[in-house]
């Protein structure tokens, strides 16, 4: 992975974000695009955790929930600007990940998956049951951060869809840039090394537990920021954002697209965000088709869509 590869990938992503609107038949698609970018952001975080460091989390939606509800609650109760609430949510998510990961990641094996599963359910239960604070299962309204008004004062008139398409796309680009920086850095190499062999990584001086913890905390912050963006653009949150299904969806997107690849993650997010909309023609068989697609990909393209396709194109298919 050279520096040149990093800029090519970022270039491709930037070009897609800028050029796709030319194909949009209506303003509605800006909403869909923004949703894809938000999903892709949390999946890029999972690429760091699963793809680089080889650890599985089944509760990352919990961090998305923290990010989302930080944007809903902090402006109302603390008088914080929604923009700062994003940072507050990211901070809380990072600290939570640290507290959960520190004892768990000393152990080898699947303990992280089980612990995060519990964490995700816990967050989702709190959000559902603390009615007085969160509005319960009905959710709550999120204050407008005033970004649109600010831009209008600066002479840029955007629809809500266009604005959040741009903001989400920009944040995704930054997230992808950071993940690609990490890939070809000492920390990223240490993560990939322990993924390959924990014992060999330790013998070259890599603190295996500490590097796993780093990956977990970083990916939690990604999920949190994605949750915040979702809350801000919908101007509404429900506990579903922290639900178990959302956690599974994130992991599925990552694995479908190619869990070691930032661009693959984006592709996985795009497909699984769009597919349910396309598959509505199958009516009640929608879930069935979705499941079949997943099984097919795992059997025929086990490394995920993008890496497998890239390998075929290079002619080095195994």
């Amino acid at each position: 992975m050279t520096r040149r590869m990093k800029w090519i990938q970022l270039g491709v992503l930037a070009a897609l974000i800028v050029l796709l609107p030319l194909l949009f038949p209506s303003g509605y698609y800006y909403r869909v695009g923004a949703l894809i970018f938000v999903n892709a952001l949390s999946v890029v975080g999972l690429v760091i955790l699963i793809g680089y460091a080889g650890q599985i989390s089944l509760g990352h939606a919990g961090f998305a929930g923290i990010g989302a509800y930080a944007c809903a609650l902090a402006p109302e109760h603390l008088g914080l600007h929604p923009g700062l609430a994003v940072l507050l949510g990211a901070g809380i998510s990072g600290v939570m990940a640290l507290l959960i990961g520190r004892p768990i990641l000393r152990l080898k094996g699947y303990y992280l998956a089980v612990a995060t599963l519990g964490f995700g359910i816990l967050v989702s239960m709190v959000l559902t049951n603390e009615r007085a604070l969160t509005g319960g299962p009905d959710g709550m309204v999120v204050a407008d951060p005033g970004l649109r008004d600010l831009l209008r004062d600066l002479g840029l008139r955007l629809s809500g869809g266009e604005l959040w398409y741009g903001v989400s796309g920009l944040v995704l680009l930054v997230g992808a840039w950071i993940a690609l920086n990490l890939l070809d850095s000492p920390t990223g190499r240490a993560m990939r090394a322990l993924h390959g062999s924990e014992v060999a990584a330790a013998t070259v001086g890599i603190d295996v537990a500490a590097q796993k913890l780093r990956a977990f905390v970083i990916s939690a912050v990604y999920a949190s920021v994605a949750g915040s963006l979702l809350a801000l653009q919908n101007q509404y949150v429900t506990p579903d954002v922290a639900g178990f299904l959302h956690s599974v969806e994130m992991v599925t997107m990552a694995v479908l697209g190619g869990v070691g690849s930032v661009l693959g993650a984006t592709l996985g997010a795009a497909i699984l965000t769009l597919l349910p909309q396309v598959l509505t023609v199958f009516a009640e068989y929608e879930q069935l088709v979705l499941g079949a697609v997943m099984i097919g990909v795992m059997i025929f393209l086990p490394q995920g869509l993008l890496p497998s396709i890239a390998r075929r194109l290079r002619g080095t298919s195994e």
Partner: peptide
């Protein structure tokens, strides 16, 4: 105990 999915250079860099 090789980092199989990394390049030869990345193995040494690790």
């Amino acid at each position: 105990q090789i980092f199989q999915e990394m390049t030869v250079l990345d193995n040494v860099l690790a």
